[in-house]
Design a protein around this nucleic acid. Structure first.
Length: 571
DNA sequence: GCCGTTTTCGGCCCGACTGTTTTCAGTCG
């Protein structure tokens, strides 16, 4: 299943952390619950299962007390402490801390002094001037909180990786164009390739920081500005931080601001155990001498570690790996395995697709237009599919060192049968199958449907396996362990759909699928030529999953791909 | 609440910026 138990318990632990912080509990206790929540969030196994098998206790961050609380949840569906805390506060009080600029301390004070227990009550109190008697609430704070409430109400979500990548490139180009800027780079979750980005972190080396700050402040609404750091709100909602750092500590700053927080905590812990200190200015020995700071590589090296790729810097566990995975490089990919042309709902001709693919150095491109049931997407009938095959064969005669693969994105129908008959699928170069309808089946029925779908002969790839759209809809529910097992058995690769709106499989699921022995396929699902740019986003997710070229269908040459389909006549 | 190749107790990342409390606490990342 999509592990609803994990999601529920994550929420419970997050709320416990918030309540404890509100109560003024030891901040490290609070952090322990937050860390446990993060650990559960993307877990590709059911926490109930892990608990029952006893494997949970060996997970980092789960000590005796937390394992016991997981036990309460598994047995009774709730955690005692959580219920206790909930009953001693107004139901909406935790939302107070969602207001930018309002943390636990001030929220607790507002509750204690004025009984404020919801965002609405806070807004009313602010407007009526009731809070000004409380220590620490001056006029600027009142304005800032009202603004924060406004932002919260807009409900702006984290931006998609694809959108932030484009924005970052534009801003970096403008910064680099300034004569006083020697270097400008993006850090933060963008550099780590996270599927969504909460705010953008930019770093520059400059001979005149004040000029850079001034320039940057002119790009948006200024939230805060100092001699080395300026924060703005882009398009009124999205926060961008710019920091000027000295050239000699650029590596330390890049490392520090790339995060993740858990990775940094682990790295600092390691430094500390070596009697060193690590901060954004460098790595310092016991005497306070800087021993590394200019590059990330030397910092990791001095800590006895290989350089760890940004995409892998998440939980901190990556510090302990015996070997780092070989980094997947875009240039090593032989082709793109999921695209659409004018024949269905794409915007370009086969010639245009082929030309673009060759321009990008691909050796092949799978054209996978929709099958006949996808009427809204101008899905191909059998007749049109066969005509398209002839057209592709004609074009292929003129290519050197390149091939268009005659493919299809075939619907897995509700009962698990496929949208084209077997004898037609047998003739195609490449078959992608996918679910496009009846998303709200029971998990059991959906599992059965997908497993039947990928058990047909001639299937190469299961496209966008979970069906999720980021920030829009959750994926459908299914027993993914079973799906991966069946995929492996039939040699069907699971797609990392590279569209920024999908990125499906996501990083964690892709890692799990690979661990289950499945091959992975990267496909842009491009419906127009600019969407070929999505491929690097998929590469990033694959890297985050630790997937190496050997697990990737796109690493195969056309000849090797063809060997997977021995029924194809030599051409 | 977690954790341990100096520790089973005493740490746990820490600096920038803000607002306001004239020396610092709160928030954030």
């Amino acid at each position: 299943m999509a592990f609803e138990d994990n999601q529920q318990l994550t929420r419970i632990f997050e709320e416990i952390a918030d309540f404890l912080e509100l109560q003024g509990e030891n901040i490290f206790k609070v952090k322990a619950y937050q860390k446990a929540a993060r650990g559960l969030e993307g877990l590709e196994r059911s926490v109930s299962e892990l608990y029952r098998s006893g494997a949970l206790a060996s997970m980092p961050g789960f000590g005796k007390a937390l394992v016991e609380k997981v036990g309460q949840f598994v047995d009774r569906g709730e955690v005692e402490l959580h219920q206790q805390l909930k009953s001693s506060f107004p139901p909406e009080i935790l939302h107070l801390m969602d207001v930018p600029g309002l943390g636990a301390k001030k929220a607790a004070l507002l509750y204690k002094e004025l009984g404020i227990g919801s965002v609405d009550a806070l807004e009313k109190a602010l407007r009526e001037g009731l809070v000004t008697d409380i220590k620490g609430f001056g006029t600027k704070t009142v304005d800032k909180l009202l603004e924060g409430i406004g932002l919260l109400r807009q409900g702006e979500q984290r931006w998609l990786l694809g959108r932030v990548s484009v924005l970052a490139e534009e801003l970096l180009a403008r910064l680099r164009a300034l004569p006083v800027v020697q270097r400008a780079e993006a850090a933060g979750s963008l550099r780590r390739g996270k599927e969504t980005v909460g705010d953008l972190d930019l770093l520059v080396i400059s001979s005149a920081p004040e000029q850079v700050m001034e320039f940057f402040a002119g790009l948006g609404e200024v939230i805060g500005s100092g001699p080395t750091k300026t924060s703005i709100r882009w398009e009124g909602t999205f926060q961008i931080d710019l920091r000027c750092v000295p050239a000699e500590s650029f590596g330390a700053a890049l490392q520090y601001f790339t995060g993740s927080m858990d990775h940094n905590v682990a790295l600092r812990g390691r430094a500390r155990r070596m009697s060193c200190e690590l901060n954004e200015y460098g790595l310092f020995d016991a005497l306070g001498q800087c021993i590394a700071s200019e590059t990330e590589e030397e910092i990791y090296a001095k800590l006895g570690l290989p350089w760890i790729a940004p995409e892998l810097r998440e939980s901190g566990a990556e510090l302990e790996w015996e070997r780092q995975p070989e980094r997947l490089e875009l240039g090593k990919l032989q082709g793109n395995l999921h695209t659409h042309s004018l024949w269905s709902d794409g915007t370009d001709t086969l010639e245009q697709l082929a030309e673009e693919a060759q321009r990008r150095g691909y050796r092949y491109l799978a054209v996978t237009d929709h099958s006949r049931s996808m009427v809204v997407a101008n899905g191909l009938t059998v007749e049109r599919l066969l005509a398209q095959g002839e057209e592709i064969a004609r074009l292929n005669r003129n290519f050197k060192n390149f091939r268009l693969l005659w493919g299809s994105e075939v619907d897995i129908l509700g009962d698990g049968t496929l949208d084209f008959p077997e004898e037609i699928l047998a003739r195609l170069d490449f078959v992608v199958v996918a679910v496009h309808s009846q998303f709200s089946m029971s998990p059991e029925a959906m599992t059965e449907r997908i497993c039947r779908g990928i058990s047909h002969p001639h299937v190469d790839v299961l496209a966008h396996p979970s069906g999720r759209k980021i920030n829009r809809r959750a994926g459908y529910q299914a027993d993914w362990e079973r799906v991966y097992a069946v995929a492996r058995e039939h040699g069907v690769a699971l797609e990392i759909n590279c569209s920024p709106r999908r990125l499906d499989l996501n990083d964690k699921a892709a890692r799990r699928a690979r661990d289950c022995g499945c091959l992975i396929s990267l496909g842009t699902d491009a419906h127009s030529l600019p969407e070929f740019d999505y491929l690097p986003l998929g590469v990033l997710q694959a890297r985050r999953a630790g997937i190496e070229a050997s697990s990737l269908l796109n690493s195969l040459s056309w000849e090797q791909l063809r060997k997977r389909r021995p029924h194809l006549a030599d051409v």
